[in-house]
Simulated scan of single mutants.
Amino acid sequence: MAMELGDLRVFVAAASAGSLSAAARELRLAQPSVSERLRRLERLVGRPLLDRSNRGVSLTPAGERLLPHAQRCLDMAARALDIAREDDTQGTLHLTTHATYAPLAVPFVIGALQPLRYAVVVDDRHSPSALRRVAAGTTDIAVTLPAPHAPEVLLREFRSEQVVAVCHPRHPLAERPCDILRLSSHPLAVNLWGSGADLFHEQLLDAPSRAHQLYRISSAETAADLARSGQAVAVLTRATVDRDLADCSLVELDVIDMPEWHVDLMVAHHRERADEPAIAAVINALDHLRP
């Protein structure tokens, strides 16, 4: 019996959704078809992949081992289809980055590829997942934070972004310098990433802040929206709010004891693929960024 991509797709959907009925809705299949595909895959593997109960499904040890490889197979199949569908392009470059860094990463990569006829496909992943995809060959380029990675992955410096605190112009903190103690008495929307994040968090914990007023938000744009609406002070990279600061819809706070804090972004690629035209173009663009 041969393994089918459709069976892997059902397995991944069920594992992600936590129930067969939810997976059936997501894939627009009848639930009996979903159940049969899972049983067929389990027969091929020779052991259960999911534990079924009235509360849904959960992965067995075998299912946990299979899941990352199943996802990788589906990613590779999708990439193969993209390549086969190309018409007047030389190829497709897959870029993986977090949504927070996409406004910086996507224009940079597209600009680097302008001399070439390459399509660009972007997906949203956190840095550890993005780096695993680079190692597995399921993405070409990743823009990430520095993070542990496989030896076959090479990280190159992209840019370092300063972290600042911003608020609505009519916010009570907008008019004069403040310290972290005073900052902590107001709702804060914070990206706790980069050098300085741990120290800032420790300073917040030392202040008599209210836990329900600290919003740890992975999307910098969402944090910025909370500041734009006046609901919170946002602590995020300056690049996220450059336009807001320029048009005075947000103001930067003078936090006198704010630790030196930067988010260092890296471009990651597979060591053995540095000579591929699209990846080489991105590397060349990186070299021109350096003074």
Rank of each mutant, 00 (worst) to 15 (best):
R117V: 03
H149E: 00
R79V: 10
H270R: 12
L66E: 01
F108Y: 02
V233S: 02
T240M: 01
A130L: 06
L81S: 15
E260I: 09
L155R: 03
S218N: 13
V10G: 04
L188T: 00
S129K: 11
R170V: 04
A84D: 09
S249I: 00
D264S: 13
A105S: 11
L188I: 12
E161L: 12
P151K: 08
D75Y: 12
Q114K: 13
L188R: 05
S16K: 15
D206K: 12
A165D: 03
L67D: 09
L29D: 02
P151L: 08
P148Y: 12
L49V: 10
V12Q: 08
T144Y: 02
R228C: 08
L265V: 05
C248I: 00
P128A: 13
I283S: 09
D140H: 10
F158S: 03
P61R: 01
R37F: 09
A211F: 10
L192T: 10
L49P: 00
R125Y: 13
A99D: 15
A211G: 01
T237N: 11
I279C: 06
F11E: 05
L205Q: 13
A102K: 05
S218D: 15
R40F: 04
C73Y: 10
A227R: 07
P128I: 14
G111R: 11
F11K: 07
V57F: 01
P115A: 09
F200Q: 01
E152G: 14
Y118L: 06
L8H: 06
R132M: 14
L5I: 12
S33L: 13
A197S: 15
R271M: 03
G56H: 02
A220F: 00
R133M: 14
R210K: 14
A207W: 03
P187G: 05
R176Y: 02
T144C: 06
S53R: 10
H98S: 11
A142K: 00
A77C: 09
R40H: 11
L253C: 05
G230K: 04
Q162V: 14
A112C: 06
G230Y: 04
V106R: 02
D257W: 05
V163W: 00
L205E: 14
P148M: 11
E260Q: 11
A174T: 05
L205F: 06
A70Y: 02
D87H: 13
T92H: 07
A78V: 07
R117A: 14
H212L: 09
P208K: 06
A30R: 14
R216Y: 08
L44M: 12
L49Q: 04
R170H: 13
L226Q: 09
P177S: 07
L49S: 03
A278W: 05
R182M: 12
V120Y: 00
P68A: 01
S127L: 04
V120E: 01
I217Q: 01
A274I: 12
D75T: 10
L93P: 01
T100A: 14
I256D: 08
A78R: 15
A70G: 06
M1Y: 13
E161V: 13
D257L: 03
R39I: 12
M266L: 11
I141L: 02
S185F: 05
R216D: 08
D140L: 00
P291W: 05
A30E: 15
P103H: 08
P259G: 07
L205I: 10
I180W: 03
V263D: 00
A197V: 09
T60A: 11
D244P: 00
S209Y: 15
M76R: 15
P61A: 03
D123V: 08
L66C: 04
A30V: 10
P172K: 08
H186A: 09
A78G: 15
